[in-house]
Amino acid sequence: MKVLDLQCGQHHVFEGWFGSEDDFQSQRTRGLVSCPMCGDAQVTKKLSAPRLNLSTVRGEREAHGTAPSPAVESASAPMPTTPPALPTPQDVASIEPAQLQAAFLTMVRHMVRNTQDVGHKFPEEARKMHYGEAEQRNIRGHATPEETEALIEEGIAVMPLPLPDVFKEPWQ
């Protein structure tokens, strides 16, 4: 399996997994490779470092008695009791574009996984839940700017989040 660093014409960077270089070129030529952020099919391969299997190296270190102490590798550390502080505007401004893109994709994946798509019935479903006529659940869907404004004026908490159509398709 080859893991390639790819970039679309809009400069979004993402990863693709292919059986071989020929497999990547074949899929790209047929228009089967597209950016997960914007759907752009103008995809190029970026230079990338080889991926190393560090679990083999860790196993060799343990066999020779040079493994890190258990405290370093422990995943059972207690969870913090308070949520982490929000970043300052200066912190956000210094984040690399690839990190912002990764955070955005993580957030969108979480939202899509944990909401029900009600499509164009969004304003109607949001009102039913708000007024106790329907079960409370996490929903997403479509609303015009006017519908969104009316929901907000009624005291219904909604958040416009425009997403490209590519996010509505199955993800690898």
Rank of each mutant, 00 (worst) to 15 (best):
A134I: 03
G132F: 07
E73V: 10
T66N: 01
L100Y: 06
V13H: 00
A67T: 02
M129S: 00
G132K: 04
D40A: 02
Q90W: 07
L52W: 15
H12C: 07
C35F: 02
S69W: 00
G31P: 01
F14L: 03
H110E: 09
G59T: 12
G119E: 09
M107T: 14
N53V: 06
G65I: 03
F14A: 01
S94Y: 11
R58S: 08
V108W: 03
Q90D: 14
S34A: 15
D23T: 08
L54F: 03
K121W: 01
P70M: 02
A85I: 11
D91I: 06
K45Q: 05
D40W: 02
Q99S: 11
M111R: 07
Q116K: 15
T106N: 12
K128L: 06
V108M: 06
S20D: 04
A77Q: 12
G119D: 07
E60W: 12
R127L: 00
V92D: 04
Q101L: 12
R113A: 13
L54G: 08
A102C: 06
T56E: 12
M129T: 01
P87H: 09
T88D: 06
V13Q: 01
R58A: 02
P50C: 04
S74G: 03
G31Y: 06
A63H: 11
E124I: 04
G119M: 08
Q42I: 08
T88M: 04
S94M: 11
D40G: 06
Q27T: 02
R113T: 14
L32I: 08
V43G: 00
P89V: 04
H120D: 08
